[in-house]
């Protein structure tokens, strides 16, 4: 526990002093408020720059809060997710490669504490950013498209936090297993790219962590998929496996730290 706290302090200082806790939430806020705003102004924007032919009538579909929150979610799941994964995919591998980890690994530290400290800070960063983004989105959604039920919104947010924990666990496990280049590629293939694949051919199955955030958004319409609970269970199980793999490989690869 002491080792965990010491390492957590170190990781948190790193994230804080490199301003990650400032810029990433700001990015998510921008991503969150972009969709409610652009959709609201779509007609004006098209009218101003679109050079539409005379007499052309544009009928915009009427958007409901769930459509807007769903659009914001897909922003977080594309740009936001790539940025989060790219930021943390080197967390373990880089320290090994540049030799900074050597001065830690020669000490009697527990690799469980080491991995957990990194997972905790990465998850905190992802969750703070996600919550900031959804808060921004919710503000404009209620302002421009109608109210959202508080309980439903919290369920959606909670579901997204589970997804973030899964994302950080998988990404850090990649970082524990491979060098930075491979870890980054693999994590991007598994997570943002995996989401894309799942959205294209995912209609053949219902149980998949990549569907979790979409199931979360469905709470806004009053009820979610019948597969929600099973999907959460599967995601948590995969997350725990990723954590165990991450711990195992941070220990096994400690000897590859540059001296």
């Amino acid at each position: 526990m002491n080792t965990f706290l010491t390492l957590f302090t170190k990781e948190f200082r790193e994230a804080w002093r490199s301003l990650k806790f400032v810029w990433m939430p700001l990015l998510f806020i921008v991503l969150g408020i972009m969709d409610p705003l652009t959709n609201y102004f779509m007609e004006d924007i098209l009218g101003a720059v679109g050079n539409l032919p005379e007499g052309f009538m544009l009928t915009m579909p009427e958007l409901h809060p769930i459509d807007v929150l769903s659009a914001s979610t897909s922003q977080f799941q594309s740009i936001g997710l790539v940025v989060l994964v790219a930021t943390i995919a080197s967390a373990i591998s880089r320290e090994r490669q540049n030799g900074m980890a050597t001065l830690l690994y020669v000490r009697p530290i527990s690799f469980t504490a080491l991995f957990m400290s990194k997972w905790a800070v990465a998850s905190l960063l992802g969750i703070v950013s996600g919550v900031a983004g959804y808060a921004g989105s919710l503000y404009y959604t209620t302002l421009l498209y109608g109210s959202v039920e508080y309980g439903a919104f919290m369920k959606m947010l909670g579901t997204y936090c589970i997804w973030i924990l899964f994302v950080t666990a998988v990404t850090l496990a990649c970082s524990a297993m491979f060098n930075t280049a491979i870890s980054m590629t693999l994590a991007i293939l598994l997570l943002p790219f995996g989401l894309m694949i799942d959205s294209i051919i995912g209609s053949f199955w219902s149980l998949s962590p990549w569907k979790l955030s979409a199931y979360g958004v469905q709470f806004i319409s009053g009820g979610t998929s019948e597969y929600y609970t099973a999907t959460v269970a599967l995601t948590l199980a995969l997350m725990i496996s990723a954590v165990l793999l991450g711990i195992l490989f941070s220990k096994r690869n400690a000897a590859t730290a540059k001296i």
Binding site: R13, E14, G99, M100, T102, L103, V106, K258, I259
Partner: peptide
């Protein structure tokens, strides 16, 4: 546990620049 009783200085020690 001999790791407790060992101090090590590598040839090119690398430090966390933000600390």
């Amino acid at each position: 546990d001999i790791r407790r009783e060992i101090g090590f200085l590598p040839q090119y020690p690398q430090f966390y620049p933000w600390l």
